[in-house]
Design a protein around this nucleic acid. Structure first.
Lengths: 217, 217
DNA sequence: GGCGTAACCCTACCGTAGTAGGGTATTGGG
DNA sequence: CCCAATACCCTACTACGGTAGGGTTACGCC
């Protein structure tokens, strides 16, 4: 497999990009594998040189730039195989990448061996989707949510419990049932939370705490 | 700088871990740098060998395992310097890591040169927080939000516009003003959205679409 | 003991959210 | 041409969210 395959690896994490590039060179028989970490650099190299056999594209480039990039690549350099990679295992991401023109998709946490097999498949002209342990088991780990304590928000313990359920979208009545309280008491806790956080609605609370999660479920 | 520094790099993305380990070997004068991708492997190596000079820990290990890991490391191997790294640039993450006992923190998208300087600082006994271009500029890129089109959800164009504002937490009245509609018309669009998505409240809609974003703002 | 705070309960009130029912204008396809 | 779908408007109603005011326990601190 000592061919003259060449690759371009774009990832906004330079160390990650060079790790992948090194892997292509040392384990996949690539003669050239260049890591880049910005869109501008990516296109500059394409303009100046022969299109590579393979382009590895991080799905989560800043500002969602990866999808247009895939589309553009497919149109401009149809001979280049496109492998999208992502750090999270949201299955919808895979579909998005395929729609945009990727020939394959896998997760960064995949074992290097799987990664190598995917690359080989793409070079053969095959596609690579929905494979590997993560897609097979369908294991969707919970969203990346930064844990926050009630104390950090200046809330009492009880208010923290109420807030946790609020963030799940539960109405006051259900929260009252879960905590064995009257609905009215829950409302008062909610009022306290709103004051503390400077919000007017429970909806403002939910939107302002997007991506965070109260510790202790 | 040809000392006998050793490192353990834990990241659930094997290629990323080995990329960082390679960098430590080739650019930071480390004599040993071992990439691992699971918690079990991490502790197994520590039990069997001398504690390393440096441990590089990905903040977003599955199930929030990184914080307890940092705490445990600090307690059990206080001589090992701890560098936490993260793929996103949420400033709160840095504080969390420091509280847990990390001696330094930086983002994966930092340039390799910055990465090298942080490692050197830690080996000298210094700490490394809030540095590099990302922390300095305070540039918080928007949360990783998977773009979704209105059509994919089976919604009309108008419903998509209304949904986008709903997800920002705007009440009907404000949505009506923004779109120059009567509040009642907005309510009807909302009802349509709820039917389509199988939700009872706008709150259920917001919570079920967490981490997603409507295309076109 | 007196004081503050948190948690719990109540009634009463108001504003928003969402549904029901009925109406008009526009558009595109059979 | 008619029909279906979409978008827009209206009144009227119910239910939930949130505030205000007033009251009771229990705990810890000066």
């Amino acid at each position: 497999m000592t061919n003259s395959a060449s690759a371009l690896v774009i990832d906004d994490h330079p160390l990650s990009a060079s790790g992948i590039a090194d892997f292509l060179l040392s384990h996949c028989g690539f003669g050239q594998a260049r890591p880049v970490s910005s869109i501008a650099e990516f296109w500059a190299i394409l303009d100046a040189a022969q299109p590579p056999s393979l382009a590895v594209v991080d799905f989560w480039l800043p500002e969602g730039a990866s999808l247009p990039l895939l589309v553009q690549m497919k149109r401009q350099y149809p001979a280049t195989r496109l492998l999208a990679i992502s750090a999270d295992d949201n299955s919808a991401v895979s579909d998005k990448a395929r729609e945009a023109g990727a020939d394959g998709f896998l997760h960064k946490q995949e074992a290097p061996e799987i990664f190598g097999r995917a690359v080989a498949a793409l070079l053969r002209g095959d596609t690579w989707f929905h494979s590997g342990p993560f897609a097979v088991t369908g294991s969707n780990q919970p969203l990346k949510e930064l844990p926050v304590t009630a104390a950090e928000l200046g809330l009492t313990a009880r208010q923290g419990q109420v807030l946790a359920m609020m963030l799940k979208g539960l109405p006051n009545k259900r929260i009252a049932l879960n905590l064995s309280l009257s609905e009215q008491t829950v409302k008062e806790h909610v009022t306290g939370i709103l004051e503390r956080l400077g919000a007017r609605n429970r909806i403002e609370v939910i939107t302002m705490l997007r991506g965070k999660k109260l510790e202790g479920s």
